[in-house]
Amino acid sequence: MQYSVHSVETDKYAGNTTWAACPACQLWFPVSARMLEPAAPPACCPGCHREFSVKESRR
């Protein structure tokens, strides 16, 4: 065997994307993990541009 395995977390089925939904227009859009950090700016709905906290939205 010539290859090394596996220190990377390999749960393919967990996915990797956090979704937020705008509380005003209900538009879903992907947000990075950094948007969940305390110092993150408010999310901005790409549809209606309303600002809101990702933690308060559905995901």
Binding site: A20, F29, P30, V31, P46
Partner: peptide, 16 residues
């Protein structure tokens, strides 16, 4: 907050 934005991967990069 910037994005989402269409990236070179052909997927949207998340808002960040």
């Amino acid at each position: 907050a910037d994005g989402p934005f269409g990236e070179y991967t052909g997927f949207l990069g998340p808002q960040t």
